[in-house]
Amino acid sequence: MKLLLIEDEVELSKSIITYLKAENYVCEVAQDFKTAINKTESFNYDCILLDISLPDGNGLNVLKALKANKKTDGVIIISAKDSIDDRIAGLNLGADDYLAKPFHLSELSARIAAVIRRRHFDGNKVIVLNEITIDTLAKTVAISNKKIDLTRKEFDLLLYLVSNKNRVISKNAIAEHISGDEAEVFDNFDIIYAHIKNLKKKLLLADCPDYIKSVYGMGYKFNI
């Protein structure tokens, strides 16, 4: 999988690349508008991570150029401007997703995985990990071909953990992922503990090994 990161902030792109490389993505970086245009014109990427505010141009124009050239690269906008207008403008121009800075790397990784799944029409919508089969379209989970009944939040949680398998995901990232704005209002992690507990119980009941590990209370890891 080939990714292009268009981001002028060096430290930020370094972190993103370090995290994504471990997912076996091939990552290229464009630090300015010109390089971005050159690269997107010459190559195809599975997913482009696009910062809107670049020193020499508006990132949205990269998006416009892509559409003008009828390119089908997936695009996730990563922007410091979290306004509904920007979000709508970006999505209307054909971006697949919008992520406001600061974001969690685990969240970014999950979103990239989702965009790539959606972009590939050849049946990549099912994730198989040993005995676990996750159908991302039908939103169902089966253990050894036996369907288990998960709530919407439990399904999201499992998919999130799996998208970042063998990585520690911080509790804050999980809280934000499964409860959105609510996480900003209530700081306690009880809701995560509750969901993790239920998910683990359901997986164990279906004779699935206990892949979900707590890492010293700082986060969780799907160890496979």
């Binding site: 930020l12 972190s15 370090t18 995290y19 800075k101 990585r167 990232a173 890492v215």
Partner: peptide, 15 residues
Amino acid sequence: TPLAIFQNKLELLMQ
């Protein structure tokens, strides 16, 4: 931006 860098580096540190 610095907040994003800080948060992301922490996530890397966790790994």
